[in-house]
Simulated scan of single mutants.
Amino acid sequence: MQLLAKLLALSVVVLALSSPIAGDANCPSLLEVGHYRQSCPAAESIVRATVEGYFSRDPTVTAPLLRLHFHDCFVRGCDGSVLLNTTTTSGPAEKDAMPNQSLDGFYVIDAAKAALESQCPGVVSCADILALVARDAVSLATAGNTGGASLWEVQTGRRDGRVSSAAEAVANLPSSFADFAKLKEQFASKGLNVKDLAILSGAHAIGNSHCASFAKRLYNFTGNGDADPSLDPSYAAALRARCPPQFDNATTVEMVPGSSTSFDTDYYKLVVSRKGLFHSDQALLQDQEAGALVYFLQGSSTQDFVQRFGVSMVRMGRAGVLTGSAGEIRKNCALVN
């Protein structure tokens, strides 16, 4: 464990991930940092100003924005499909799937898109807006990040998909009750490894969760009215007080008690203490490599953690992207053109 920690501490974290990344073989265009430097030079500033405006009024907006990007990339890749509305011809869209019914922050995306359309009509994709707001949200929420400076460079050049399926969302989104083997499989399907899984799980450093996402751990983990043995008993008791057996579906609990708006390493400290809110959080300790990373990160600095998080976010943001002539640039993020 100590040897791995030293190796990790000495590893070089590459933040300047600016080399182009090829999309589908049929799509000659590439993802790159600064894709809109000629077509819409103010694109990233416009998105940033939009996020900052909402954050100044409600700091809790950061977690929903980060979650939107995750939920987009795990279904059909990072193509903005999570933003599409259900229509009479399309069938239920991703946002109407059970795992997505608690998603929030769509209004921020819509506001950013409206501002971009006013400045650069038909240029910036909704998929890229999702990637940018996720970065900006983390930057604003990161403890000690004076002024909320950007913490990693986002590769852009994605185009928007035209298909959104609730059934695909149910099949592809990682469950809060998943064990490690399932999580590893789902992350691998997006080109992400165990290191990415452990680091991106750190997104749970901010935000809240509805009781339904973890109540099974408290009352009926194996179907026999028992509690999840991987959950600290005292923490389980506190959670039961907040979420009684007949809990209100609107009741929420902070992912990190007392720190739901501060992006730091406290999440990993909780997992080590068996106080991860989701079974999928505690599942990280089921694997030697992931567990070693959890122990390393719980003692790491916020700066080091966020650097690593940024690298894995860039990797996730390449999943299943549409580039070139594939897809479209939506005028309204909730509707295909």
Score class of each variant (00 low, 15 high):
residue 4 L to D: 15
residue 7 L to F: 13
residue 15 L to A: 06
residue 17 L to V: 08
residue 17 L to R: 15
residue 18 S to F: 13
residue 21 I to K: 15
residue 27 C to G: 12
residue 32 E to I: 10
residue 39 S to I: 14
residue 45 S to W: 14
residue 46 I to C: 03
residue 47 V to A: 08
residue 52 E to T: 15
residue 55 F to P: 01
residue 55 F to A: 14
residue 56 S to M: 11
residue 57 R to I: 09
residue 61 V to N: 03
residue 61 V to H: 05
residue 66 L to K: 06
residue 74 F to V: 13
residue 80 G to R: 07
residue 82 V to W: 01
residue 85 N to W: 11
residue 86 T to A: 02
residue 91 G to E: 07
residue 92 P to F: 06
residue 93 A to F: 12
residue 96 D to H: 10
residue 107 Y to D: 15
residue 108 V to G: 07
residue 109 I to K: 04
residue 113 K to T: 11
residue 118 S to I: 10
residue 120 C to Q: 09
residue 124 V to A: 10
residue 125 S to T: 13
residue 132 L to T: 11
residue 140 L to W: 13
residue 141 A to Y: 12
residue 151 L to P: 03
residue 153 E to I: 14
residue 153 E to S: 10
residue 156 T to M: 09
residue 159 R to M: 03
residue 162 R to V: 09
residue 171 A to R: 02
residue 174 P to A: 01
residue 176 S to L: 08
residue 180 F to D: 02
residue 185 E to I: 05
residue 189 S to A: 14
residue 193 N to I: 09
residue 199 I to F: 07
residue 201 S to M: 14
residue 201 S to Y: 11
residue 202 G to K: 04
residue 205 A to G: 15
residue 206 I to C: 05
residue 208 N to S: 11
residue 214 F to T: 01
residue 215 A to E: 03
residue 216 K to L: 09
residue 218 L to S: 01
residue 223 G to E: 00
residue 228 D to L: 00
residue 234 S to I: 07
residue 237 A to P: 03
residue 239 L to V: 00
residue 242 R to N: 12
residue 245 P to E: 03
residue 246 Q to K: 07
residue 247 F to H: 07
residue 250 A to F: 04
residue 251 T to Y: 03
residue 253 V to R: 00
residue 255 M to P: 00
residue 257 P to Y: 02
residue 258 G to V: 01
residue 259 S to M: 00
residue 259 S to K: 08
residue 261 T to W: 05
residue 266 D to Y: 04
residue 268 Y to T: 10
residue 279 H to N: 07
residue 289 E to A: 09
residue 302 T to E: 01
residue 313 M to R: 11
residue 314 V to L: 01
residue 314 V to T: 09
residue 319 A to C: 05
residue 322 L to F: 07
residue 328 E to F: 11
residue 333 C to R: 06
